[in-house]
């Protein structure tokens, strides 16, 4: 008690001191935040505004940094660019094929994983391996396995030959073949994450529900549809939504298989188009890139909102 009093007296006027301390603390807090604020400001907030500006600046010249007006021209240009339309088509095909297929496949694999005890961890570890590998590197391996050259038909064609089909050039051949490789590789790449999430979702369903259902003579199919699915449905929706977003942004997997010149391979994606407009052989048009990126953002945003609405509706039911 007496010590406290002493220090108070020494500290002088306690009231203004407290105020000062509070200010000092607030100042310190901002100091801690400063690095994050600076980086986010320069590399996230400012670009966000800037990209909108770019998309409406007509005839922007990146060398002289001048433009001759504002308007919807950039959007119009992008929407009439056959490369962009091809990219949109490719992206949509990839999304529509890989999202449902990879989710289903992941569900199947997770169910299998969850029903075994022996070797479960080994399988889990193996299945997760693609997540930690460099997409570009493994993509090259896929390319080589699928590619048909004058010297060899490649591994996949060798297998196809057993079934008396082929040979097909998956890398430089018909569109559907290229798309097949693309979707196959995409699924190979995205599956680890989905399997991981679904396996832990399945494992978190209390065993006792299955025991109860089993005693009541519930068939395995009914257990799945009436117990498992409703209980893991939030996770499935999460995966579908993130899957949609991820698939719409497909790009590096395409580069991995078909190389950097995606337009000539006819396998470009929307994101690829954005980057091509920005930089590279056809680059130097940040305005077109901005318009394309905003169109992509609008598409992804709409689909996410629709997904969320559906998930809300089903979960209420």
């Amino acid at each position: 008690m007496s010590v406290q009093q002493e220090t108070k007296i020494q500290a002088g006027k306690p009231k203004s001191n407290a105020k000062f301390l509070k200010r000092l603390n607030a100042f310190k807090a901002w100091l801690y935040l400063l690095p994050a604020l600076v980086f986010l400001g320069i590399f996230m907030v400012y670009p966000l505004i800037d990209v909108l500006v770019y998309s409406f600046e007509e005839g922007y010249n990146s060398a002289s940094q001048t433009s001759f007006g504002t308007g919807w021209f950039n959007y119009a240009y992008v929407l009439h660019d056959p490369y962009f339309l091809q990219a949109v088509k490719n992206t949509f095909i990839i999304v529509i094929i890989t999202v449902p297929l990879s989710t289903l496949l992941a569900l199947l694999i997770s169910l299998a994983l969850n029903s075994i005890k022996k070797l479960k961890e080994v399988f889990q570890t193996i299945f997760f391996l693609p997540y930690v590998t460099n997409t570009l590197a493994v993509g090259l391996v896929f390319m080589i396995m699928f590619k048909k050259t004058p010297y060899t038909d490649g591994l996949i064609n060798m297998i196809l030959a057993i079934f008396k089909t082929g040979p097909i050039d998956f890398i430089d051949g018909p569109y559907w073949a290229k798309m097949f490789v693309m979707c196959f590789y995409t699924i190979w790449v995205v599956l680890p994450f989905k399997v991981l999430i679904l396996t832990s979702a399945l494992a978190s369903v209390d065993e006792v529900y299955y025991k109860a259902a089993k005693i009541d003579g519930t068939s395995r199919f009914r257990m799945f549809t009436h117990i498992t699915l409703p209980m893991i449905s939030p996770m499935i929706f999460y995966l579908v939504i993130t899957g949609f977003i991820g698939a719409f942004k497909a790009y590096s997997d395409e580069v991995a298989i078909f190389g950097t010149n995606l337009n000539s391979a006819g396998m470009n994606t929307i994101v690829g188009y954005v980057y091509d407009m920005l930089y590279g052989d056809s680059g130097g048009y940040p305005s077109y890139a901005a318009a394309a990126a905003l169109i992509l953002f609008a598409i992804v945003f709409t689909i996410t909102v629709v997904n969320l609405l559906i998930s809300k509706k089903t979960s209420i039911r």
Binding site: D206, V208, Y209, K211, A212, K214, I215, D216, G217, T218, H226, I227, P230, M231
Partner: peptide, 20 residues
């Protein structure tokens, strides 16, 4: 005999009521 064919009813410690 598998559980489903035994005609037993069971009440679990945690009740195991389907929450949904």
């Amino acid at each position: 005999l598998p559980a489903e064919n035994r005609g037993v009813g069971m009440v679990f410690q945690s009740y195991a009521l389907y929450p949904h």
